[in-house]
Design a protein around this nucleic acid. Structure first.
Lengths: 245, 245
DNA sequence: CGCGATTTGTGCACGTCTTCACAAGCGCCT
DNA sequence: AGGCGCTTGTGAAGACGTGCACAAATCGCG
């Protein structure tokens, strides 16, 4: 019911806009909405209904409306959401109005691919530095960036403010790298190494583990296989499996 | 390969091992426990307490005990869990007693890295085929495997049973590839392309999107930055952020 | 043999997330 | 102006996940 909640910040600048504290589950879905909205904008849509957007994002429409309502969204009853406005809102909430600098540590197999991944630039990020502990890799040029030694991290951080650290090293090196990142003030880490990182309070770590994803799928394969052996119960379920919160 | 097949429900005369239907959140954590258990086994531990294992896996100990209890686990009060036995149990439940064949479609930047990723073999998977739609890539040898054209998928599936399909193509090609995978009988897909896939009922899709992970971290950075500008409230939160169900 | 130390397994209460269902609001058409 | 169809935003209920706290079970030892 709040009129003019003034959440996000068309006017930008000035006072802190009192970022609403969103449920984690909602935060995890906002990027998906954002991507769908960009697609719609590219297709020339100016407005979109919750039904349409939820379909494009692969979620339930009620869930989408509730998510958007949490950020005090601007929809118009009987019409839908203004695509451009909603993009602006979500990008603001996600902190994407500034292009964030990412430091990527570990230029092995995976790190190399991440360094060349073109999905960063268009989505609010910029790889600011490539680092590795292997001296034989230092100096190599990947995608226009020179690989520097990981011990130069303080120097790199001094040159420009690192917003997010990405760890793509072997598991054995990951904790050490995390410590180094934390030491230079990084408070958000994306960890591709298959291990648990321990970090001080206030530092956020997200983990991506390819093998774990496969093992979860393996479980479902196993379950489905065991069901087909059974008589009655065709207990097939959801059409689209969410990545989960 | 494995001869001793008494894992799931040892004594039961029933043919089907009666795979318990686990909560999704539990399934998502089992691989993490499994990894921690392997580390413990390598370190020579024969038993481990819920406290010790939960610390190694980065979760709450009560949660771990409840998770394990769901699969009718074999712990010993006053002692803990037998590491080797627990590994066997979890691997059985996850369907890892057979080595599953993975077909990887899209040998671009990311796909190339995945093809060379050594984390598969040791964790129950084997890359059975590399495929791409780009004729200029077909024929290339990566990690001992020849890249074949994606239209050969039916032939590949005929040669050996594909358990899981991995999509590492651009978004524009992903839905088409998914359809092709489904057509040859694949019912589990890991999708790295930034788009929603629509698949028939009974097919499981998990999605991994690097940009989304970064955007979620960006939100937390934004939130933390807005908090430091505010008075007192040091509302720092959890030490370790779970990738979360 | 019994006792205390230890650790599992779980009942219960609490918080979060999801989904339904519908009132309130908006625009268009008559 | 008024009514009608459409869509948002939200209250409420239910499903799900989490964590505490403790009884039950087991081992080791005197």
């Amino acid at each position: 019911m709040s009129q003019h909640r003034h959440p996000g910040a068309p006017g930008r600048a000035g006072a802190v806009p009192a970022l609403p504290d969103l449920p984690e589950a909602t935060v995890a879905r906002l990027p998906e909405y954002l991507r769908a909205l960009h697609n719609l904008a590219d297709d020339g849509h100016e407005t979109v209904s919750s039904e349409g957007l939820s379909a494009a994002a692969g979620v339930n429409s009620a869930k989408l409306r509730k998510d958007l309502s949490h950020l005090g969204s601007y929809g118009t009853r009987g019409v839908g959401y203004d695509v451009a406005l909603l993009i602006e809102q979500i990008e603001y909430v996600l902190g994407l109005t500034q292009r964030r600098a990412v430091a990527l540590v570990g230029v092995g197999n995976l790190g190399h691919a991440l360094a060349g991944y073109d999905g960063f630039a268009g989505r609010g990020f910029r790889i600011a530095a490539l680092l590795d502990a292997d001296a034989s890799l230092v100096g190599e040029v990947i995608n226009g960036l020179v690989v520097r030694h990981v011990d130069e991290l303080p120097a790199v951080a001094a040159e420009e403010s690192i917003s997010i650290g990405v760890i793509a090293t072997p598991a054995a090196a990951a904790q050490r790298v995390a410590d180094q990142l934390v030491a230079v003030g990084v408070t958000s880490i994306l960890n591709f190494a298959p291990c648990v990182l321990s970090v001080p309070e206030g530092v956020d770590v997200r983990k991506v583990d390819l093998a774990i994803e496969l093992q979860i799928l393996s479980f479902h394969e196993h379950r489905k296989a065991s069901l087909t052996a059974l008589p009655g119960g065709l207990a097939a379920n959801d059409t689209q499996e969410a990545i989960g919160t």
